[in-house]
Design a protein around this nucleic acid. Structure first.
Lengths: 254, 254
DNA sequence: TTTATCCGTTTGTCCGACAAAGCTAGATTT
DNA sequence: AAATCTAGCTTTGTCGGACAAACGGATAAA
């Protein structure tokens, strides 16, 4: 073997990967815009000159990556990767890495506070209307932990949306997906839990309306501290977000 | 159509999806541990009773999701999803959503501050040694924007690691992947930029060593503000990341 | 206007096949 | 005996062809 290699390593990516890469490039470059059709499998077979099985494997990769999806009639089209879907993967990764609720709590505190600060600064009338709608529905469902937990998660999503910061929206999502599902357990297990939750939301919304950052931050902190107190009554913050929880969330969702 | 639907939508997932789900469940549940083999395609064919093509499509899904990988000899094995891979996809999503550097900056400020706070509280001797090593190398490369930019990114990764909060580590990664590559442009374009960067890192490390949270936060803020000032000299914060970054950084990298 | 029917297209799945690359174990060489 | 080589088996990546089910659209019937 020569001391200095004469040749660069040849790129030998499998064909399905090359198919996926080629389509991905077109989407990233903007040559194919979100919503536009990619073509049928048959057409891709013709264009790439590979077998349909190979094309289909490439498609699966892109589909899982969130770059393409199938519309109502199963035809392929480009799409904007949905935060939510990617966030789900990340949440799973967090579980497998056995993170603790303490880590989850600490990070969520940071991100929710940033979120409310942004919302106070930049929420539009429409954002506020959405939050108000959520609050009204929540108030009507104080006694229903399951529904209330879902509305709580939505409230925080709306708050992030109101911050007009999409990076923040994305950054908070993975933690939120693991964090907020516990709300049901907590609201259900703590006396007056539901009422306190709605009360906090009301104060936060008022702060956003009144552009009062201090109040917004204060009530967001209280809101999360409430969660923490509730959580510590039923579990330890330093236990990992276990498989048991995954099952719980999974089962409940399906 | 009845006002209230009588039936829930029936689950008719395609076979390849069911294959992927089945394997995923085993991994999430911990029945298959990271590093353990999944079996050959032939075995999966036998176990699931479906065709190999179907199995392979399912495998692509899991592979892209980061739950399984192929070892040196291409055999399937479970693995821990790597943050980095997932974060890359998220970064791509951010680009497609045409986020601005303002959003990136604001979120990074939040997350880096949280990161340094955690590091000040919980950094181990090993963490500090790693940071010190990074600082020493940086100091030796003040005049080299490309190298320094890479070391800067690493410094912040190490800082997040020192916070002992894996959720935070993950949450900051997508933004960081888009944010820090611009450092090269900035350090190269601003007089004394490299020196200021190393100086800031030094103060941050000192603060972590001395468990001085206030100083840590202060210098982290300054460090990022420096970035911002530098950035505004060469581009607008409100332009999308795609337009600015794709042109500059991509061209430079290739 | 709605319902039913037919037909071409597309997807999901299956079968069988083969070359290339990796592993295994016996045969060969040193 | 140890190292090396070789041949065979296994596994993956790819291919071609096939077919049922679902969908879209057009047309006929009520």
């Amino acid at each position: 073997m020569p001391a200095t290699p004469l040749f660069r390593r040849i790129d030998v990516a499998p064909a399905y990967q090359k198919v996926a890469d080629a389509i991905e490039r077109e989407i990233i470059n903007g040559r194919i815009k979100p919503g536009e059709p990619i073509g049928t499998e048959q057409q891709l077979v013709a264009q790439f000159g590979v077998n349909r099985s190979t094309v289909r494997e490439g498609i699966r990769v892109l589909e899982e990556g969130g770059l393409i999806r199938r519309d109502s009639s199963r035809r392929l089209q480009a799409c904007l990767p949905r935060y939510n879907k990617l966030a789900t993967r990340l949440s799973r990764a967090l579980i497998l890495h056995e993170v603790t609720f303490r880590e989850l709590f600490e990070t969520s505190m940071t991100l929710e506070v940033a979120s409310v600060e942004g919302a106070v600064e930049r929420a539009t009338e429409e954002n506020i209307a959405e939050l108000a709608g959520n609050l009204a529905r929540s108030a009507a469902l104080v006694g229903n932990p399951a529904e209330l937990a879902e509305l709580d998660a939505e409230f925080h999503v709306l708050m992030a949306k109101a911050s007009q910061n999409r990076v923040l929206q994305l950054a908070r999502e993975p933690a939120a997906q693991l964090f907020f599902p516990t709300t049901e357990m907590i609201v259900g297990g703590v006396r007056e839990g539901g009422a306190r939750l709605v009360e906090a939301h009301r104060h936060i919304l008022d702060a956003i309306r009144g552009r009062d950052k201090e109040a917004g931050v204060l009530w967001t902190r209280r809101h999360l501290q409430d969660w923490r107190r509730g959580f510590e009554k039923i579990a330890s913050l330093d236990r990992s977000v276990e498989h048991t929880y995954m099952e719980h969330a999974y089962a409940a969702r399906q």
